[in-house]
Amino acid sequence: MDTVIIDGLSFALPLFIIAIGGIYSEKSGITNLALEGFQGFGAFIGALSAVLIANVSGTEIQNLFYVALLFSMLGGMVFSIIHAVLSIKFKADQVISGVVINILALALTTFLTAQINAFVFGTASDKFQLGVSDRFTIEGLANIPVIGAVFTNVYPFEVIIIVIAFFAWYLLYKTKFGMRLRASGENPHSVDAAGVNVSKIRFSAVLISGLLAGLGGMCFAYSISANFSSNIYMGYGFLAIAALIFGNWRILPTLAACLLFGFAKSGGAFIAQSMALPSSFTDLFMILPYVLTLLLLIFFSKSNRAPRALGEIYDKGKR
């Protein structure tokens, strides 16, 4: 039973931070289908820097976890500039830009991973080996029944994500910047009339989404897959989009959606395992989170409302 909570959380939280990135961008009025590409590219930069530093300095790669996290955020942010420039400055269709970025991220990182492995390390490999990050258990709290599992075998990144998520929540709902950001997605003209540069707000929102998505991607690379390869593009970015739409573009309900995904996923795996069914039955239980989402959406979607100016190109002259 404990494993359901432990695995569920370690899947839900990276998903959550990617989804928060999506909320920032979409709340400011920029449709963001590029999350998948951002998280992949962020993880690529993080993994690359970890592998390079480990190679040069000779440190164990597991110890470079925090360095990798930092670089993954940078990488995600730098890559998100493409989306920002394309959809804000070049006024391209935001859906198109997002899809293109996903395709480009997959192509570029696969190509570069193989190329760098061959040129720098002289190996014919299409992945960067990272290993799984160390976990810790809070003694005392871990002994509480049921809830104790939350404090058992915790990845350090889970704590980091919770701290950043809290900060992101504060920034979005309690500060002037957050208010302007949300207003840019509802009524950009009024923001403009108040003397605030809409394009600048949106630009920074997209950069924040790249930063957070990069972090989330790196966390997946250091836990589930234990390496960086093209397998990072498992569709988690899209799942995060589903979670944020399910959460009605608000941070707390989105957390609930992500937890639902996480626990349904680990719960399904747990049921399949405890019933000692053949491995192919696991597949049948894997659909649990997705079926559950669809069913819940049928009941909750009526009140779902996207930011009003979402996906619209901001045109100063238009009224």
């Binding site: 989009i241 589903a242 739409i245 669809l294 009526k302």
Partner: peptide, 12 residues
């Protein structure tokens, strides 16, 4: 049900 087609297609 006003379910966004992006979400439902991803789930399906």
């Amino acid at each position: 049900f006003n379910i966004n087609e992006v979400v439902s297609t991803i789930m399906l």
